[in-house]
């Protein structure tokens, strides 16, 4: 039996089969340049934005606001123009999208805080555009047919916001990074699932961190993310 330790971010307990969130498709190595790269890149970003806007129109708050904001990132000229410039200098279309979105993600990550969290939205937009330009299945949550525990490395805020609450007993996230007080994925997970029977969300402690620091999950929680969890817990209790 596999045991994964985590830090609860909302109260409750849940049992269910595991459904894994589809991993993002990576651009192929040595992707060939395409003569119609500009058109394909524009079409892919357009389709990502249209899909997010359509989901926003069906969703209630706060999901709609998050989806609309992510759609705005997909329509932003900076990553699109960056990808087209990279394609014009010989990169394949998927490689160009990957490079351009990563360039801005790195800038956001370096700014930290609020910006680092927007980097997750941008990665979601980039991963969707890459899948579309390659004709591959979209990354993310597969259609859910039964109650389950959703296991993901990370959930884009847009995905967490639109999860089918009736089907998802709880998301288990291995974020592999320090969580912030305003971490959008966790905040949305709490709003969506608090009050549901057995609502849980975990930040699993990466095995390598526990090994490197020789810490138990509890000590890890206290030292690194305990205060963040306590503050988000209070926010959930008040809301």
């Amino acid at each position: 039996m596999t045991v994964v330790h985590g830090i609860g971010v909302s109260a409750g307990i849940a049992f269910g089969p595991v459904v894994r969130v589809g991993a993002a498709v990576r651009p192929p190595d040595d992707e060939a340049p395409a003569a119609d790269a500009e058109e394909r890149i524009r079409t892919a970003f357009d389709a990502v934005a249209d899909d997010l806007d359509a989901r926003a129109a069906r969703a209630g708050d706060p999901a709609a606001a998050i989806l609309s904001a992510t759609a705005m990132l997909a329509r932003d000229p900076s990553p699109i123009d960056g990808a087209i410039a990279r394609a014009a200098s010989g990169a394949g279309p998927a490689t160009a999208i990957d490079g351009a979105t990563r360039e801005f993600m790195d800038q956001f990550a370096a700014l930290g805080g609020y910006f680092a969290e927007r980097a997750a939205d941008l990665r979601d937009v980039g991963d969707r555009a890459i899948a579309l330009v390659l004709g591959a299945p979209l990354p993310g949550v597969p259609p859910l047919t039964q109650e389950c525990i959703l296991v993901a490395h990370d959930l884009a805020p847009a995905e967490t916001a639109t999860l089918d609450r009736a089907q998802v007993l709880g998301p288990a996230l291995d974020l592999g990074r320090q969580i912030g007080v305003a971490d959008a994925a966790l905040l949305v997970a709490q709003r969506r699932f608090v009050g549901a029977l057995g609502s849980v969300a975990f930040k699993a402690v990466p095995e390598r961190l526990r090994r490197n620091h020789g810490q138990s999950p509890g000590r890890f929680a206290g030292n690194r993310v305990g205060s963040a969890c306590a503050r988000t817990d209070r926010g959930a209790a008040a809301g």
């Binding site: 990132l73 000229p77 900076s78 123009d81 801005f104 800038q107 956001f108 910006f115 927007r118 941008l122």
Partner: peptide, 11 residues
């Protein structure tokens, strides 16, 4: 940077 890009303005 382009003024019509939210990403560029944020950065």
């Amino acid at each position: 940077v382009p003024a019509n890009s939210m990403i560029a303005i944020m950065a």
